[in-house]
Amino acid sequence: MLTQPNPETTGADNKKEVLEYLMKRFGDRVFKLAYYYVRDRYHAEDIAQEVFCKVYEKLDSFRGDSSYYTWIYRITVNKCRDFLASSSFKRLLPWGDLSVVEKQRKQVDTNRLLEQVEGGELFSRVMDLPTRYRMVVVLYYFEQMTTVEIAEVLGLKESTVRTRLCRAREMLKKTLAGEEYI
């Protein structure tokens, strides 16, 4: 049984205890959220680890304005956005031929292709949506979050979330029309 430590108690040991609780409680979900963004298992693992390092760093300043869940999700979203905005291969240091980087980009595209195969056709179709639409769909339909929670996590207005959900549904209808997967 996973019991939540008291975050009011201070001290390094308690901080570690809280972190461990949070990792056990939310680790898998953070990984999933990161995967939804980056569509690569290894990058998603890396991001999830970075998220919890950040959580540990900021644990003292967490004021409880939101739930742990929303707070950690927001950190994850920011990490994923940073990752997508920056070089995808920050740990790779090409000394010479820049075609290497281009080659790896191509490889990531291919990775995605095969990740899709691994996940099932319909799941892949959802993952094929552009990121802004994909995220609202997976959070709403797969993670069962409300539009209010999604808006908070993604830093959007609730009306924007609803609009994106509608558009995403239309896109999926077009994509899936005439294809039998079930």
Binding site: M23, G27, D28, V30, F31, K32, Y35, R41, E45, A48, Q49, F52, E118, G119, G120, E121, L122, F123, R125, V126, V137, V138, Y141, F142, L172, Y181, I182
Partner: peptide, 20 residues
Amino acid sequence: LSTARSQSERFFDKFDFDRG
């Protein structure tokens, strides 16, 4: 979408964050 959700659950079942 319900089927897609089941597929995603199956997909993520094989990962865990213990090593993380």
